[in-house]
């Protein structure tokens, strides 16, 4: 019965896929319209960065990126609302600890590098922030319950830093007559770098805090249900 249903759904979805494939084929067979590639590269010089993807993310479509940071924050706030973090992992042995001592600074350095090259080569705030997040994950796995994050008040300021700086820059530009997130000529480069640096820190902290999985501050969680027991690695 259940197998039949799965089969039926499979057939229906195969039909849907066939329809979509046909639609995609028909779409691609059209005269390729101008799209945005030429336009985006034609005005790349005015954006203050030379990596086209960074230009789209932080200049042409910066509004989307601001809201994307808000989405990340909303997820973390949702996680925090569900209660304190579960207990962490057992402290790792000396060999692994020594490795962690190497990996974490390396990840942070690599994150800084990715942030810097993002202006002209592959990289940028999100990739750099993800590396910081990875450093946090490794720290937590090695037995650091807070994953290297500061206490609750500082953590709260850090997670709003990205969207905060972004929105304040945007609002400031609006107030000074340029329009929301319309960078004044010549200033785009350093404003983007400012926003990206703040975003990198916020993304790193938010991803780490999401991995920790609960409200900070109150130490380790209750241990009544066996859910939060220390997991052996």
């Amino acid at each position: 019965m259940k197998r039949d249903l799965a089969l039926l759904l499979g057939i229906l979805l195969a039909l849907l896929a066939a329809l979509l494939l046909w639609a995609l084929h028909a779409t691609l067979a059209l005269e390729p319209g101008p799209r945005l590639a030429e336009l985006a590269s034609a005005r790349l010089e005015e954006t203050g960065v030379s990596n086209p993807v960074t230009a789209v993310l932080l200049n042409y479509r910066a509004y989307d990126t601001l809201l994307e940071l808000a989405v990340l924050l909303a997820a973390l706030l949702g996680i925090w609302s569900l209660g304190p973090a579960p207990a962490g992992y057992q402290r790792s042995g000396p060999a692994l600890a020594a490795l962690v001592d190497w990996i974490v600074p390396l990840a942070i350095l690599a994150g800084g590098y990715l942030l810097w090259v993002g202006g002209h080569a592959p990289g940028g705030a999100f990739q750099a922030g993800a590396l910081l997040g990875a450093a946090g994950v490794i720290l937590r796995l090695s037995g650091e319950p807070s994953a290297g994050l500061p206490g609750e008040p500082a953590q709260r300021w850090l997670v709003v830093l990205g969207a905060g700086v972004f929105a304040v820059v945007g609002g400031g530009l609006l107030a000074s007559g340029f329009g929301f997130l319309t960078y004044p000529p010549g200033q785009a480069k350093w404003l983007i770098l400012l926003i990206e640096s703040a975003a990198t820190v916020a993304i790193g902290v938010t991803l780490t805090a999401a991995y920790v999985g609960g409200r900070p501050g109150s130490g380790t969680a209750h241990n009544g249900t066996g859910q939060s027991r220390t997991v052996q690695r």
């Binding site: 005005r43 042409y60 479509r61 910066a62 509004y63 929301f180 997130l181 319309t182």
Partner: peptide
Amino acid sequence: VLGGWGVPLGI
């Protein structure tokens, strides 16, 4: 249109 780029580049 945000960002001063006009459509279709801006939002």
